[in-house]
Nucleic acid binder design. Structure first.
Lengths: 215, 215
DNA sequence: CTGGATCCCTCACGATACTG
DNA sequence: CAGTATCGTGAGGGATCCAG
């Protein structure tokens, strides 16, 4: 019996054997945003050793969770993307992310924020029910990381980079967590300078309605 | 920065830091069934080293997922149980279990089946919508493991051990997976002797309607 | 008997250098 | 860009031991 095997005939144990190894689900997290090249994944997971990344990708591929695809010429580069089976982890990842966000607290020394993590967090915290009949668009800037979100009647599309036509630009830092957790009111956040808004000054109230942690 | 930290300010990464270590979620799986003593957990996870079990329990306790409780005299023994926060992992565990069950295949050499794993699997595969208006009770025997399930109008209660008043006793082995996955029909299963029924011979059809893997 | 602690050994992971 | 090669370290595997 292999070292990593748990020795139980159990669907849950089998799941952990497939995606329970260190870094595996973080790779899946980034691939949930879209296909990524090896180097993209490295950028999104700066602390992963490259041999571990290579190993995980191979294992995930063997398990039918990830597929390797060589792009058409002339670039001919390689991308990794989730299979249908792998994509079915989305709900688990979003739920675990919501659950873990409640223990986030303040950032620890050296912790970084990546675009893919933010994009996933927006999807995880989005409340479709509260977005009924709502149209909104945001550009979110967390230090050097810029992502955008468009909300249209219960649907959410999250993208990377700026969104020139966004109705509201939210420029902030880790205070975003307290804001989304309801520990910090939009009014306090803007008054203290923890959040800088460009656009509709009341747009932030709607934002925290649509995207919330653990309430 | 600690070795296990992923270095990302991300709810999902934080979740993995709390429950992503080897064995951690399997401990949670068993505790989802109910409070367990150290020795109960060992029995349910026969391959876990005791130092790892002790370490995980301590970490889970520090993370606010598990609490240690000393029972009243005279036994004065210790039980571990999930906190409310830990219990909120139930949905994630059930979903991951359903997802992994689709890759179960046939049992590998040496793989065991534990009562807690079966009880969780029944909860994971139960379809409340199909159980509307249904009353049923089962005793399920998988080798030496005996569990029971009572279904009452969309609700499910799973217990350990025999259920004398069960309407149907299902005695089988790993064929249960193919049965619940729809790869083996109840008729075939009984005809081949892969499943032995005591009670209503058509009860198995209802069972596979109520508990199903990946369809 | 329960609830661990201690030991040793091995291998997976971490860090980094290097290559087609 | 997309990995492979190398090497050190520490967590996990496994057995044993011990206190209450």
């Amino acid at each position: 019996m292999s070292r990593r095997a748990y020795g139980q005939y159990c669907g849950f144990a089998r799941a952990l054997e497939m995606v329970g190894e260190r870094w595996a689900l973080l790779i899946v997290r980034d691939l949930l945003i879209g296909p990524r090249r090896f180097t993209d994944l490295r950028r999104g997971l700066p602390r992963i050793p490259t041999n571990v990344l290579a190993g995980r990708l191979k294992e995930l591929e063997e398990a039918g969770i990830v597929q390797r695809r060589v792009l058409a010429r002339p670039d001919g580069s390689v991308v990794y993307e989730l299979t249908d089976y792998g994509s079915e982890l989305e709900d688990v990842v979003l739920r675990l992310g919501r659950w873990g966000a409640r223990s986030l607290g303040e950032p620890r020394a050296g912790e970084i924020i990546t675009p893919d993590a933010i994009r996933l967090a927006l999807r995880a915290t989005f409340d479709p029910a509260r977005a009924r009949g709502v149209r909104a668009s945001y550009e979110l800037r967390l230090g050097p990381v810029i992502v955008n979100a468009r909300v249209d009647d219960g649907r959410l599309v999250v993208g990377g980079g700026p969104l020139p036509e966004a109705r509201l630009v939210i420029e902030t830092g880790p205070a975003i967590r307290a804001l989304m957790a309801g520990e910090l009111s939009p009014a306090e956040a803007t008054a203290s300078g923890a959040v800088l808004l460009t656009g509709d000054p009341h747009g932030l109230d709607q934002f925290v309605e649509l995207f919330r942690i653990g309430r």
